[in-house]
Measured scan of single mutants.
Amino acid sequence: MSIQHFRVALIPFFAAFCLPVFAHPETLVKVKDAEDQLGARVGYIELDLNSGKILESFRPEERFPMMSTFKVLLCGAVLSRVDAGQEQLGRRIHYSQNDLVEYSPVTEKHLTDGMTVRELCSAAITMSDNTAANLLLTTIGGPKELTAFLHNMGDHVTRLDRWEPELNEAIPNDERDTTMPAAMATTLRKLLTGELLTLASRQQLIDWMEADKVAGPLLRSALPAGWFIADKSGAGERGSRGIIAALGPDGKPSRIVVIYTTGSQATMDERNRQIAEIGASLIKHW
């Protein structure tokens, strides 16, 4: 067993022997301040990774656009098919120029040779490549099948209805392509620590998230040296922004954090800054 596999296998073990965790309302004060600064709703939840206990939450059962955070769930569904012998990570998928959609920095470079399922998941999570996500959605049967996968996990809230990039439209009061912070946090925890996926697939999923290259201005910008984070960000229309993450000190994750916002007129930089400040408060009061 590799060191990384050992780390993920012992996530519940280490967490069980940690000192009790206590909620700190100071972080919620910052979440509410972010709402004021952005002029928009902000949803927040913080779960203990081992027990699933909610440590703090704000608007945990209000719907927010998922945006690209759905790509972690998508690759979880792909990995479940791999575990069941219905898919192979090494299978190569070929596609054409007509398949390319807006923001496809990886797939646009491989029109000639195609990409493997493993490479597509890596591109979808680490670079948020939209064509990679659409190609992977095709392998599982489309958005409705991802929703069905989530329902089978016990998540009857999260739903995907459309493809990239239309799913980022974020129309107010439109339930399409949305989740709730509580539902997303619980589902992410199941994917990373539950028995739904094999140990190898859980490790692969967290490795992809740990290698995320496009979430630097968010929670990662607030992390002290030595902290662990595996995350996936999302951005959408109407001032929408979000991030889902597993993080913790001492090089291992111990909490799940989900943050979503929508309806702001603020710039992307300002949305990023507010999420980073929430992260800084979380870490300060850990």
Results as ranks from 00 to 15, higher is better:
Gly234Ile: 00
Asp129Gly: 01
Tyr44Lys: 00
Gly194Ser: 12
Leu160His: 12
Asp207Lys: 09
Arg41Leu: 12
Gln204Arg: 04
Arg118Ser: 13
Pro25Cys: 03
Thr131Gln: 03
Ile171Leu: 15
Leu282Met: 15
Phe228Met: 12
Leu55Met: 10
His24Glu: 10
Asn50Asp: 11
Leu223Arg: 08
Ala40Phe: 05
Gly141Met: 04
Ile171Gly: 15
Ala34Leu: 07
Trp286Arg: 03
Ala225Cys: 07
Thr138Pro: 14
Arg159Asn: 14
Ala280Gln: 04
Met209Gln: 03
Ile206Ala: 06
Ile283Leu: 12
Glu102Pro: 06
Arg255Asn: 02
Thr186Leu: 11
Arg91Val: 05
Gln86Met: 07
Leu150Ser: 11
Val101Ser: 07
Ile244Glu: 01
Tyr260Gly: 00
Leu79Arg: 00
Ser96Thr: 09
Ile54Trp: 11
Ala132Glu: 01
Asn134Phe: 03
Thr261Phe: 10
Ala222Lys: 14
Ala133Pro: 03
Ala148Pro: 05
Pro65Gln: 03
Thr262Cys: 08
Glu270Cys: 03
Arg271His: 15
Val157His: 14
Gly216Met: 14
Arg220Asp: 03
Asp207Val: 07
Leu191Ala: 14
Ala34Pro: 03
Glu35Val: 14
Gly248Pro: 00
Ala170Trp: 05
Leu73Pro: 10
Asp99Pro: 09
Thr178Gly: 03
Val157Phe: 04
Val258Leu: 04
Glu164Tyr: 03
Ile54Asn: 14
Asp269Arg: 11
Cys75Glu: 01
Thr193Ile: 13
Val117Thr: 09
Thr262Ile: 03
Leu282Arg: 01
Arg238Asn: 12
Asp207Glu: 07
Val78Ser: 06
Asp113Val: 04
Val31Ser: 04
Asp48Gly: 04
Ile93Val: 12
Leu49Phe: 09
Ala211Cys: 14
Pro217Met: 15
Glu35Thr: 06
Lys232Cys: 01
Pro181Arg: 00
Gly43Ala: 07
Asp174Phe: 03
Val258Tyr: 01
Glu46Lys: 10
Met209Phe: 03
Arg220Lys: 13
Ala200Glu: 08
Met153Arg: 04
Ala77Met: 12
Lys284Phe: 08
Pro143Phe: 10
His110Cys: 06
Trp163Ile: 09
Arg118Gly: 11
Val258Glu: 00
Ile244Pro: 00
Tyr95Leu: 07
Glu35His: 03
Thr261Ala: 14
Lys109Arg: 12
Asn50Lys: 14
Leu79Asp: 01
Thr186Gly: 12
Thr158Cys: 03
Asp250Lys: 04
Arg91Phe: 05
Ala123Lys: 02
Asp269Ala: 12
Ser281Tyr: 15
Thr178Asp: 02
Arg162Lys: 10
Asp83Asn: 11
Met180Leu: 12
Leu79Ala: 10
His110Asn: 06
Asp269Lys: 09
Met66Trp: 01
Ala123Phe: 03
Trp227Cys: 02
Asn130Tyr: 01
Asp99Met: 13
Thr147Lys: 03
Gly236Ile: 02
Leu160Cys: 08
Leu188His: 09
Thr193Cys: 14
Gln265Val: 06
Ser240Cys: 12
Trp208Ala: 13
Thr126Lys: 09
Glu195Pro: 13
Trp163Met: 12
Ser104Ala: 12
Val258Ser: 06
Gln97Glu: 08
Ala34Asn: 03
Gly90Trp: 04
Ser233Pro: 05
Asp83Cys: 08
Lys71Gly: 00
Leu120Thr: 06
Thr107Gly: 09
Asn168His: 06
Ala123Asp: 03
Ala133Phe: 02
Ile259Asp: 00
Pro143Ile: 10
Asp250Arg: 04
Gly279Tyr: 05
Gly226Glu: 05
Leu188Gly: 08
Ile125Val: 05
Val72Asn: 00
Pro224Glu: 04
Val72Lys: 02
Glu26Leu: 14
Asp161Leu: 03
Thr139Asp: 15
Leu135Ile: 09
Gly52Glu: 12
Met209Asn: 01
Tyr95Cys: 03
Ala200His: 06
Ser240Leu: 02
Ser240Gly: 06
Glu210Ile: 15
Leu146Pro: 00
Ala132Trp: 01
Thr116Arg: 05
Ala123His: 05
Ala77Ser: 08
Asp36Met: 15
Glu26Asn: 15
Glu35Ala: 12
Arg91Lys: 13
Thr27Leu: 14
Gly251Leu: 13
Ser122Glu: 05
Ser128Arg: 00
Lys30Gly: 05
Thr27Cys: 15
Leu160Asp: 03
Leu167Arg: 00
Asn134Ser: 05
Thr179Met: 01
Arg118Leu: 13
Ala84Pro: 11
Leu205Ile: 06
Thr147Met: 06
Leu197Asp: 08
Ile278Arg: 01
Ala34Glu: 03
Gly85Cys: 08
Trp208Leu: 13
Val117Cys: 14
Ile140Asn: 05
Ala235His: 02
Leu136Lys: 00
Thr198Leu: 09
Cys121Glu: 01
Asp161Pro: 00
Ile171Val: 15
Tyr95Ile: 04
Arg202Asp: 03
Lys71Gln: 00
Asn50Gly: 09
Gly216Ser: 08
Ala245Tyr: 01
Met66Asn: 02
Arg273Tyr: 04
Asp177Gly: 01
Gly248Lys: 02
Leu196Gly: 12
Leu191His: 11
Asp113His: 04
Thr267His: 10
Arg189Leu: 11
Val31Asn: 02
Thr27Ala: 14
Trp163His: 04
Asn173Val: 07
Val78Trp: 03
Lys53Thr: 11
Leu89Gln: 04
Ser96Gly: 09
Gly76Ser: 07
Leu49Asp: 02
Leu205Asp: 00
Pro25His: 15
Glu145Trp: 13
Glu195Phe: 03
Ala211Asn: 15
Met184Cys: 03
Glu119Leu: 02
Ala40Ser: 05
Arg238Tyr: 15
Val258His: 00
Ala276Thr: 06
Ile206Val: 10
Ser240Met: 08
Ile278Val: 14
Pro181Gly: 09
Lys109Cys: 13
Gly142Phe: 02
Asn173Thr: 07
Asp231Lys: 11
Tyr95Asn: 02
Ser80Leu: 14
Arg255Phe: 03
Lys144Val: 06
Arg91His: 06
Arg271Asp: 15
Leu192Arg: 00
Thr138Gly: 13
Lys284Arg: 13
Phe149Lys: 06
Leu219Ile: 10
Lys252His: 05
Ser264Tyr: 10
Leu137Thr: 07
Met127Pro: 02
Lys284Val: 12
Leu73Gly: 11
Ala170Pro: 13
Val258Thr: 05
Pro172Glu: 07
Gly39Lys: 09
Asp129Thr: 01
Ile256Arg: 00
Ala225Asn: 14
Ile259Tyr: 07
Thr138Ser: 14
Pro65Phe: 03
Gln203Met: 03
Val257Trp: 02
Gln204Leu: 08
Ser233Ile: 00
His151Arg: 06
Pro60Gln: 04
Val31Phe: 03
Met153Gly: 04
Pro253Tyr: 10
Thr187Arg: 02
Glu210Trp: 10
Pro181Tyr: 01
Glu87Asn: 05
Gly141Arg: 08
Ile140Gln: 10
Pro165Tyr: 06
Glu277Ser: 13
Ala230Pro: 00
Leu89His: 07
Gly76Tyr: 09
Met67Ser: 15
Glu277Arg: 12
His156Lys: 14
Met180Gly: 14
Gln203Ala: 04
Pro172Ser: 06
Phe58His: 03
Thr158Phe: 03
Ala124Leu: 03
Gly43Thr: 02
Leu191Asp: 00
Glu61Arg: 12
Asp212Lys: 03
Ala123Glu: 06
Val29Cys: 13
Lys30Val: 05
Leu146His: 03
Thr139Arg: 14
Gln265Thr: 11
Arg59Ile: 01
Ala132Tyr: 01
Lys232Ala: 00
Ser221Arg: 08
Ile256His: 00
Thr198Phe: 08
Asp33Thr: 08
Gln265His: 09
Arg162Trp: 02
Ala148Tyr: 05
Asp48Tyr: 03
Arg220Ala: 06
Cys121Gln: 02
Gln203Gly: 04
Gly216Pro: 07
